[in-house]
Design a protein around this nucleic acid. Structure first.
Lengths: 156, 156
DNA sequence: GGTGAAAGGAGTCATCC
DNA sequence: GGATGACTCCTTTCACC
């Protein structure tokens, strides 16, 4: 898939990545273009799925989600049969990320819960019910020093 | 730290987490309150750092960042001396996350680059220059099934 | 903390280039 | 694709409760 983005698109993406609530008018001023032109570009970026959404980054502590863990999961799935397992994992709200990884382990999953007890409960209630999981290895995060989704925007 | 949030705050956070570009007027209509009251609550949530920012989620492919990897890093840092290493890692723009983890490995780092070649280059140019890194173990992501930052908002 | 009014600004769209 | 202009609606502030 080719997104066919030009320099103006990249600058829009860069500014919106930093601040999703920037006004269309401010974008237009910064890029010295008419607001209507910017609005149309933003709509096209949304349509092309270059922009996948606008989210507010919440402080996990403010919503009582203090525990972060990464879990490596091995499955009994055969080659190319991982669809059901990934779907089941993805449906769990506490699971923020599901990656299919190279190497011996099959999946890497990022999970946020209130505390260690609720992680245990989640694993007992949700993970154990996924049939093909054969083993898990959990890594608890003691402290998060950096956590961003900012991508490095090409300069063209 | 106590954030002292009430149910209305949680509902604001929930709606804004889904869509950072929701208008203040729409929030007010949904919660059946005056726009000025909502605006003040949002400002306070920002001040308290319950809201840490508003970001646009970009498609990594649209900005040519197709490779995702997790790197486990061991260091020669003594107990409580990890400050310089974490700072150096956090400064690298391609490094999206730096976590201090329990267990034998010291850090888990999430990195996005254009491809495998640019990951190698990043490791040669940036990682090798951080003095206390003693070893790294890299896990390449083959496919990302889910990747969100959505937190589960308490229902009070 | 919340409301309501008022002014200034932003979003949006039809139209033309 | 981008600009202009016009209409509508939103944002923001402030006096009042």
């Amino acid at each position: 898939m080719n997104f066919n983005l030009d320099d103006i698109d990249f600058r829009i993406l860069e500014m919106m990545q930093c601040n999703a609530r920037i006004s269309n008018a401010d974008l237009a001023r910064e890029l010295e273009m008419a607001p209507s032109a910017i609005l149309e570009r933003v709509r096209k970026l949304e349509q092309k799925n270059a922009i996948m959404g606008y989210t507010t980054r919440l402080n996990p502590a403010a919503v009582r989600q203090k525990l972060l863990a990464f879990i490596f999961i091995r499955t009994k799935d055969g080659f190319g049969e991982t669809g059901k397992t990934t779907q089941a994992l993805s449906k769990i709200p506490e699971v923020q990320e599901v990656h299919h990884i190279a190497g011996e382990d099959c999946f890497l999953v990022k999970v946020r819960t209130e505390d260690a007890a609720s992680l245990m409960e989640l694993m007992r209630k949700s993970f154990k019910k996924i049939p093909n999981i054969s083993s898990t290895r959990t890594t608890i995060v003691l402290e998060t020093v950096k956590e961003e989704q900012q991508l490095v925007i090409p300069k063209m």
